[in-house]
Amino acid sequence: MKQTFLDLRNNLIEFLRTFGAFQLFFLRLLRYSPEILTTRLGLVVKQVHNAGAQSLVIIMVCGLFVGAVLALQAYSNMSKFNAEDWTGVAAAFALVKELGPVMTALLFAGRAGTALTSEIGLMKATDQLSAMEMMAVNPVRRVLVPRFLGGVIAMPFLAAIFSAVGLYGAHLIGVEVFQVDVGSFWQQIQLTVEISDVNEGIIKSIVFGVAASLIAVWEGYNTVPTAEGVGHATTRTVVITAITVLVFDFMITAAMI
């Protein structure tokens, strides 16, 4: 009993210590961000390309099929009430407010997040970060901040592209397959989806972008510098990002309803 209590206490202390270090790490990234955005924009652009442009194919393919599935589900249920024209609206709401940002964040964690963690982890394992330190170059400023900013900037664009391609997928199923009137399909969306709905999606994608990028660079920077350590860090990036995104999604949705 006493041992269990001691273990719990030690785990709690360790958690608080890690959480505190995580917050300080976030503040360090924020501290250097304005300077990097103004003086080393090229580094950030390169990372936007790595995290964003190189994730485009997976985002577009997934967006297309998610939109198509939404349209299938919406049509099959709404046709029972002769409300087929609302197929596009259902898909649009789901994509813009929820699935666009959430699915993009999850896919980002799997593609760009793991790449960031393993790249930084391997740099640590092969002494590249130590070499930078020895060359009087701050690796947080030179390596981590551009990668963090690259992810934060790329995420809203990826989420927007996911939603846009998803809507096209819904159009393909609703209009081309089930012959919903094309005018009604798009007009209902235009009349029903408001700018506040789009804003909710944008806010979510920015928050998820910060969370996913922060977790990825944190895990990479704190990797145990071994092959096994890098593997564990990469796994943790996906798992922690997925949980964080879903928890934040609930909190933001609850706050904005």
């Binding site: 092969t126 002494d127 070499a131 930078m132 020895m134």
Partner: peptide, 13 residues
């Protein structure tokens, strides 16, 4: 003021 040669080179890949 230092230059350091690491055991594995530590070149930026």
């Amino acid at each position: 003021r230092f230059g350091m040669l690491f055991q594995n080179g530590a070149l930026l890949t």
